[in-house]
């Protein structure tokens, strides 16, 4: 059997198990609705403008936060990475700030910005920024020392070095950072909505959760939607990476310290 067929079988199997387990009474059906009911709930939600507004809000928070993090991460990464003194001076600070969980900022954001898109965006930017920055720093560090020497021998200016030497080496790393950041950013976008209550899919899930047993299939439907968005985000990030790097000779490997 071909891979694709096996994979489809696996997906169908997952759906079948999801359908059978509640129907056989192994878990309470009102708490774990079978996929058919979730699909029905999804279909009815999809007819309401409110659903699409939520999807749009989530996507917007995610994309804006990601874009800010990407620009900031790349610019700072290249600047810090290409100045040895700066790199040494910031290393410990970066090591310290990076593992601070972004959820720690939730109460701060909620306090300062309330239940708005802005407060969730702060979380998204914070979480995504480190992913990009760390990868770019690794990328800049990976520039071939011989190439560095060559550039110096030919008296390439600082800008030319960034443009022709550092940037091409760091690009694959930056894209890896973007891919990692994209999935983290989505998690934080939806988390912020769920916990802070800023508009988006996360808030809809919280609303459905608070609306009693009848809304349970709706809640599942929203969860499935977040999964689908996550899937698309992954697929797009991978595709973009492949597209942009098709010409690129560098070996792409995920930095172990990610």
């Amino acid at each position: 059997m071909s891979r694709a067929l096996l994979g489809a079988t696996g997906l169908l199997g997952l759906i079948a198990i999801g359908e059978a387990v509640p129907r056989l009474g192994l878990v309470p059906i009102q708490y774990a609705p079978p996929p058919s009911r979730i699909a029905a709930a999804l279909a009815s939600e999809a007819q309401q403008p409110r659903f699409w507004t939520a999807v749009g809000d989530t996507l917007r928070t995610w994309a804006e936060g990601l874009a800010i993090a990407l620009v900031a991460g790349v610019v700072l990464g290249v600047v810090i990475g290409s100045v040895p003194l700066l790199r040494a001076a910031t290393a410990s600070t970066i090591e310290f700030l990076r593992p601070i969980p972004s959820v720690a900022l939730i109460p701060l954001a909620a306090l300062l910005y309330g239940a708005t898109i802005t407060s969730t965006r702060v979380l998204v930017v914070y979480a995504a920024f480190w992913q990009v920055l760390v990868q770019v720093l690794h990328g800049v560090a990976d520039v071939d020392p011989v190439a560095h020497e060559t550039a110096r021998v030919y008296r390439l200016g600082r800008w030319a070095r960034v443009r022709y030497l550092i940037w091409p080496t760091a690009l694959p790393y930056a894209l890896t950072g973007l891919r990692l950041a994209a999935s983290v950013a989505l998690i934080l976008a939806i988390t912020g909505e769920l916990v802070i209550g800023s508009p988006g899919l996360g808030r809809e899930i919280a609303v459905a959760q608070g609306s009693g047993v009848s809304a349970v299939p709706t809640m599942y439907a929203y969860v499935v939607v977040t999964g689908l968005i996550g899937l698309c985000a992954n697929a797009f990030a991978r595709m973009g990476e492949r597209r942009i790097l098709a010409w690129h000779p560098a070996i792409r490997r995920e930095v172990a310290a990610a």
Partner: peptide, 25 residues
């Protein structure tokens, strides 16, 4: 080959949204 797509989907769900579901169960 059998499980990969199913796992890809399950992984793509942002984990915090599972909190309300797991509370139910």
């Amino acid at each position: 080959a059998l499980l990969e797509p199913a796992l890809e989907f399950l992984r793509a769900i942002p984990p915090p949204v599972l909190v309300p579901i797991i509370i139910l169960i």
